[in-house]
Design a protein around this nucleic acid. Structure first.
Length: 447
DNA sequence: TCTGGGGTCCTAGGACCC
DNA sequence: TCTGGGGTCCTAGGACCC
């Protein structure tokens, strides 16, 4: 049996732990640049605020409805997440961390009342970390997910489902009749894997509820949609098609991109931004012990500014040899900007993507770089690759110890050393303190 | 004035090979 | 008029997720 544990409104709940005044009020957490709502409290949802809704469309609710908006504080959320995940891991032999606020647990071999265990788990998370969560159980991932959806709905919309399913719901231990009643009460679009497009098409064809869907013919679904949708269907019937994976492979690509706080109209500004994004991306790359075989750099104007002339640059550069060297990748990114930048545009966004990732240190013989220096005869002389790795290790160590960007690549400071003052940097005016990860931002108790 | 930032997997179609 | 048939690899785009 699998469980899916999911924190309720994770980002808002994290903020409430450190500021109880937010409890009971409509609260949203805003994306980078305070651009759009990426988390909503129940009260905010009740105001009709949609996921990813632009801030400028809802900001009037600050005055009229007491809405509180905060800038995303990802450092805080990540730390709260790791605390929560550690507790969840105590309850099952296997854990697959699926996102910042969700993990699958594998209860294979665990005896006893899983609903009782689930209740204990969520109470412990609430007591020790302060985050409310719901637990869904089922024989497959998709059913565990659906159980979680029902557990959450039953909690926040009394009457939508039987009250005893609130907060913890096990779809793996109920008579088919009862299961089908729940399926019939659930829209097909609520199923994990059925998105907007597929959901709309299913409804058009008369498949409205989960029950309609599980009764559909699998082969026909596969033909009309895809194997992915067919797998979802089979999973709802209890046939596991998605493996539980407690040691997920490292990422296959790494992307860092941002909308600018202010439009950038100089090449130096783009170079500076792209240098920083590349630096961040390569840090993540080294953290997972990978090297990149290619880098993609893009920068673009804003399609929302219709009166602006539009221009978009996106270039993928293969690398002679896969690398995790910040200098090489920043240089490559800067070269793209120098070659492709065109003046006279209001650039709104840029990004860097690292691709063709491979594990570091496992280069095939056939992939050896013909142009790399031959190994020196003297055993004392390290190969250039070794030097590189040592330099990057040192860079990471210094920045870990003395703070991010204590040491960095020169082009990343290009514009800020001149008159420009990093006007491209994203705004986050409403960010709360990083209570748990910065000594100087630790919360203070007053007598 | 102001519109998120990450990821994954699958499929179709073209290039290329024998 | 007829115009091979498979296989692989790569890429772009779509759909989905949080």
């Amino acid at each position: 049996m699998l469980a899916l544990v999911d924190a309720n409104n994770m980002y808002v709940s994290c903020e409430r732990v450190f500021d109880p005044r937010l409890i009971g009020r409509p609260v949203v957490v805003l994306s980078s640049n305070d651009g759009a709502a990426i988390a909503r409290s129940e009260e905010a949802k009740a105001l009709g605020i949609r996921m990813a809704q632009p801030w400028f469309q809802i900001r009037h609710l600050e005055k009229t409805a007491g809405l509180v908006a905060l800038s995303a504080n990802f450092e805080l959320y990540a730390d709260m997440s790791s605390r929560m995940m550690a507790i969840e891991a105590r309850y099952a032999p296997g854990q697959e961390i699926y996102s910042i606020d969700e993990s699958f647990l594998d209860f294979a071999g665990v005896r006893g009342d899983l609903v009782a265990i689930g209740r204990d788990l969520r109470e412990t998370v609430l007591r020790e970390v302060g985050l409310p969560a719901c637990v869904g159980l089922g024989p497959t991932k998709t059913l565990a997910k659906l159980g979680n959806h029902i557990a959450k709905s039953a909690e926040r919309k009394p009457g939508s489902y039987p009250a005893h399913l609130a907060r913890v719901c096990n779809l793996g231990a109920m008579p088919e009749e009862e299961l089908h009643r729940l399926f019939a009460a659930t829209a097909v679009g609520e199923v994990w894997g059925i998105g907007r497009k597929t959901g709309a098409r299913l409804i058009d064809s008369g498949v409205r509820t989960v029950l309609d869907f599980v009764r559909a013919d699998a082969a026909t679904i596969r033909k009309q949609y895809s194997v992915v949708v067919e797998k979802t269907l089979l999973e709802l019937r209890g046939v596991a098609c998605m493996a539980f994976d407690d040691a997920p492979a490292s990422n296959k690509q790494i992307m860092v991109s941002r909308s600018f706080g202010n439009a950038v109209t100089s090449m130096d500004g783009i170079i500076e931004a792209v240098s920083e994004f590349a630096t961040r991306a390569v840090e993540r790359l080294r953290k997972q012990h990978s090297v990149a075989g290619a880098i993609n750099v893009f920068f673009t104007t804003s399609p929302f500014r219709r009166h602006d002339r539009q221009h978009e640059v996106g270039v993928t550069l293969p690398l002679v040899r896969p690398t995790a060297d910040t200098r090489v990748l920043v240089s490559a990114a800067v070269a793209v900007v120098r070659r492709r930048y065109r003046p006279g545009f209001n650039y709104a966004k840029a990004g860097v993507m690292l691709m063709d990732l491979q594990q570091a240190g496992v280069m095939e013989q056939g992939e050896l770089d013909l142009f790399a220096a031959a190994p020196k005869a003297s055993p004392a002389a390290a190969t250039p690759q070794r030097d590189r790795a040592n330099l990057m290790d040192a860079l990471d160590a210094v920045n870990r110890r003395f703070g991010r960007d204590s040491v960095r690549i020169a082009s990343a400071t290009l514009a800020s050393s001149g008159s420009d003052t990093r006007s491209w940097a994203a705004r986050h005016d409403r960010r709360t303190s990083r209570y748990t990860t910065r000594w100087d931002e630790i919360p203070q108790a007053r007598a």
